[in-house]
Design a protein around this nucleic acid. Structure first.
Lengths: 125, 125, 125, 125
DNA sequence: GTGGTCTAGACCACC
DNA sequence: GTGGTCTAGACCACG
């Protein structure tokens, strides 16, 4: 399998979400090219030692977001997306999160300046 | 009840966590002074129209973080914290989160510059 | 259980889709009022003699469409929708289908007039 | 190959059904004359870049409907149909679908008038 | 008690 | 061989 996925079963995040996040990143960043045929879900499940259903759930979410499309009997393929569309989906996925994050930072009384310094510091790591 | 809490039952966040976040903010920001006696959990539960168990869970989390301490038969009290200690706890609660957030932003290929612009924009709202 | 659902296991449609279609109709038509608490999925599953997972899948689709929202430990509730929003969702669900249907009718060489006569006839039944 | 077929691999419809629908339309509309010898299924498969099995399945469905008949070792031929018979088969194929469609429209609470307006609009496209 | 997640394993439609 | 659907049953988080 050529997928580059790491699953942490001890993570607080559900496995299907870890899968979704990693795959969606790779598609949005163009690391998986359009038309690329993903490995069969049963293969992915076996290699990651998780259930087929869990993989399926992640794939369904990817399809719902228009990042892949599945064809019975043929496999699942990375959707054709222009650079513009990829950027659009990326922003769509990031904005809501950032908005919530900022709301939380503010509720803790952390200043804009402090946040930005921390962001810069963690970005360099 | 003199607590200033707002619960959203339609939020995606569990109720106990909403409680915890709001109380911890207020303690960390010094809005609830040290030694202040919190209302009985049954009172809080009744006024917010939630389960006693839910309130208990939030209080336990606050105690675990050292923000309150309970005395059997007497009630729960805001812990005595110096300004320095409060800042320390605040940072402790914020750092891990920011670190994770930045990791996610990076995985989506968003630049440090973009993030900071968004943070600034959302901060002004 | 007060839900008014009929499942045909011999139908060509998947069970979860039958569930989804009937529930969504009832919500869109205002037959299930906003805030109404649906019976627990395990109860629905038992009464309809289908799997919990199948019910869950239908509920997930309803939630995705904004027709219900679920709260862990509390249940699933019909979303608050204005008459306008309900009409909007109804149209959203109907338009795509009608468009496809018309394309098929046209490919069979059936005239607009014939179709309309048939629609009228079946509508009266 | 003189067949006029377009296959969409990204369509939600199975390929064999796309094949069947297009061929049956052409036969019913008299675009393929009776006695016309269809190209060998291996030729069709190669030109459309699909599996022979898929073509075979579509051909079987056409034969089941009495639109073509196969003669071992000689090929598949468009069945001899009078104009009347063709109209009959067309209606047979359309009626069930329209009936189901109308049932669905009704379940969504869409009025006969609305449907007809939409049908007219989509027909003009 | 609720819903959320994950599992193993079956059968089907499609290619 | 592929993905799609359905099943039974487990464990967890939440209230």
């Amino acid at each position: 399998m050529s997928l580059d996925i790491v699953i942490s079963s001890s993570s607080e995040k559900p496995i299907y979400q870890q899968l979704f996040e990693q795959l969606s990143s790779q598609i949005i960043l163009g690391q998986l090219q359009e038309g690329y045929c993903l490995p069969p879900i049963r293969t992915v499940a076996k290699e990651l030692q998780i259930s087929v259903i869990t993989v399926k759930k992640a794939w369904e979410e990817l399809e719902r977001r228009g990042l892949i499309h599945s064809m019975v009997g043929r496999g699942c393929f990375v959707a054709p997306l222009s650079s513009f569309e990829r950027l659009d989906k990326r922003d769509e996925m990031a904005f809501d999160k950032i908005k919530k994050d900022v709301a939380y930072y503010k509720s803790l009384g952390i200043s804009e300046k402090e946040i930005i310094e921390l962001i810069r510091a963690f970005y360099k790591e």
